[in-house]
């Protein structure tokens, strides 16, 4: 009987581990600082997580298809700089679609290399991380980019506006999460993403065009990055050209925290959203309990490794399981 309950608990942990961990964090931080759970603070956390979150939605598709995308950080810098530059040259109405088109071209190139040429996604996107960074610096001449007339434009609406009392970045994140969640869970394309990531050979043997599916995942990731760049540019109406630096690892962390397997084939949009929120609330909570900003880099990774360990432990049914 005792073993049965232990196994039940292990099963619940394996299935709902992330949600339970989330609840525990929230409770602990609330006890440490009651301000943590106030509406204002919650809104502020979700709003500042929105950019990371939007990027994580796209990367979720790439990871489930069995690949990685480490280029999203520098690609986001690229989108941000391009849209700010074009804002003054073409006007906001033209700048936005032009920036989306350019970002999607980069994403399509990655999708082509990984999907059709079947190059290793780690190498390709690591290379692109650096290449796009160089591209951004070349494009901007190494300068930061600012909109000339910050008060005379409606462009700030995506980053600063709000509707029905809810900040627009949150609305974009929520709307995109709902949309992409449906795409992944309910459409034929979503099913193909899981199949390709779960067993690419079997997917091919079932007539699924694997290259096209992977290519599409990178396009989705690119569109999400462009959206994140738009929010970023709109929020401050000016930007450093390294604004997205390091975000690729945080994005990947959120996706893994959400429980997607790096081997592909598992994960959901909903879980990624939870992963993003956990990351956001942990970083916020650390500040609220009075720790230095820089501590978050350490604590975040400790927590991620703990989460991965508990996840694996719950699946194996024991905490300690060395290879031999």
């Amino acid at each position: 009987m005792a073993t049965m309950t232990k196994q039940r608990i292990a099963q619940i942990l394996a299935k709902q581990g992330i949600l339970i961990a989330f609840a525990v964090f929230m409770l602990a931080f609330t006890i440490a600082n009651p301000k943590f759970i106030t509406v204002d603070n919650v809104f502020s956390v979700v709003r500042s997580s929105a950019i990371l979150g939007v990027m994580a939605l796209g990367v979720t598709f790439v990871v489930i298809s069995g690949n990685l995308d480490l280029s999203v950080g520098s690609m986001m810098s690229f989108s941000t700089i391009v849209v700010l530059d074009l804002h003054d040259k073409l006007g906001p109405l033209m700048a936005i679609p032009a920036m989306f088109a350019m970002t999607l071209c980069l994403a399509a190139f990655i999708g082509f290399l990984v999907g059709y040429l079947r190059l290793n996604s780690l190498i390709v996107t690591l290379g692109m991380l650096s290449a796009i960074h160089g591209l951004t610096l070349t494009y901007s001449g190494g300068q930061n980019m600012d909109i000339a007339n910050k008060t005379g434009t409606w462009f700030g609406v995506f980053g600063q506006g709000s509707a029905l009392g809810i900040p627009v970045p949150i609305l974009i994140f929520a709307g995109l999460a709902a949309f992409l969640g449906l795409v992944l869970a309910k459409t034929p394309f979503g099913r193909k993403v899981y199949a390709v990531g779960g067993n690419g050979t079997a997917a091919t043997f079932s007539g699924i065009r694997r290259a096209r599916t992977v290519f599409m995942c990178y396009l989705i990731s690119g569109a999400c990055v462009a959206t994140a760049g738009l929010i970023q540019a709109s929020r401050s109406l000016g930007s450093q050209n390294t604004v997205g630096q390091g975000l690729e690892l945080q994005v990947l962390a959120a996706v893994i925290l959400g429980g997607a397997s790096l081997l592909g084939g598992s994960g959901t949009v909903f879980k990624t959203v939870i992963g993003v929120l956990i990351l956001g609330f942990i970083q916020n909570g650390l500040l609220l309990v009075g720790l230095q900003f820089y501590v978050q880099f350490v604590v975040t990774w400790v927590i991620i490794i703990l989460a991965v360990w508990l996840d694996i432990a719950a699946k194996r049914g024991k905490l300690w399981s060395p290879i031999a």
Partner: peptide
């Protein structure tokens, strides 16, 4: 087969 997928999804994959 995609072993991590359920029976139904495997069956209707093509």
């Amino acid at each position: 087969l995609v072993l991590g997928m359920n029976c139904r999804d495997n069956m209707t994959l093509p």
